[in-house]
């Protein structure tokens, strides 16, 4: 059941990314490009995705997940340096190429060599993250 639901969730996610046009980097960069030919599509995707999720969070009250266990507790409320530094780095890469992790994975079969190179670099970056975190923590402690 757990695996079946994960397959359904992943398929809906992949289908949504494909249908919404979010695997097309010109649409993502078009949204970030406020000084150019601005494209509002991404705001509709974000808004459309937040609506079902808003109701889903409401339904978690006084319930358990269908397969058992517990719902994720709200993350630590502190805004630490990792959240800010990481988000800025992610945003820079997102702006440069117009791909974030979801679309990079969803477009693996039609993104060509460039898409595979991006995915490879992204995976390498993810594996470097613990070392980057250690460095950032040292810098934050020294500051």
């Amino acid at each position: 059941m757990r695996l079946f639901l994960a397959l359904i969730a992943g398929s809906l996610f992949g289908a949504g990314l494909f249908v919404s046009g979010m695997t097309d980097t010109t649409k993502v960069q078009g949204w970030l490009d406020v000084f150019g030919n601005w494209d509002p599509t991404l705001a509709f995707v974000m808004g459309g995705a937040i609506i079902p999720m808003f109701f889903a969070w409401r339904l978690t009250a006084n319930r358990k997940p269908a397969v058992g266990g517990e719902f994720p507790v709200p993350p630590r409320p502190e805004l630490d340096h990792r959240l800010i530094t990481g988000s800025v780095m992610f945003g820079m890469g997102w702006g440069l190429a117009g791909l974030c992790p979801g679309p990079a994975i969803a477009s693996i079969t039609y993104g060509g060599i460039g898409g595979l190179v991006f995915l490879g670099a992204m995976i390498a970056g993810m594996m470097m993250a613990p070392r980057v975190n250690a460095q950032l923590d040292r810098l934050a402690a020294a500051a």
Partner: peptide, 18 residues
């Protein structure tokens, strides 16, 4: 439409698998 599919996926993963 695509955004709502993404949100539905998230809802299944949350309510189903937690």
């Amino acid at each position: 439409v695509g955004g709502m599919l993404i949100g539905l996926g998230g809802a299944v993963y949350l309510l189903g698998n937690g």
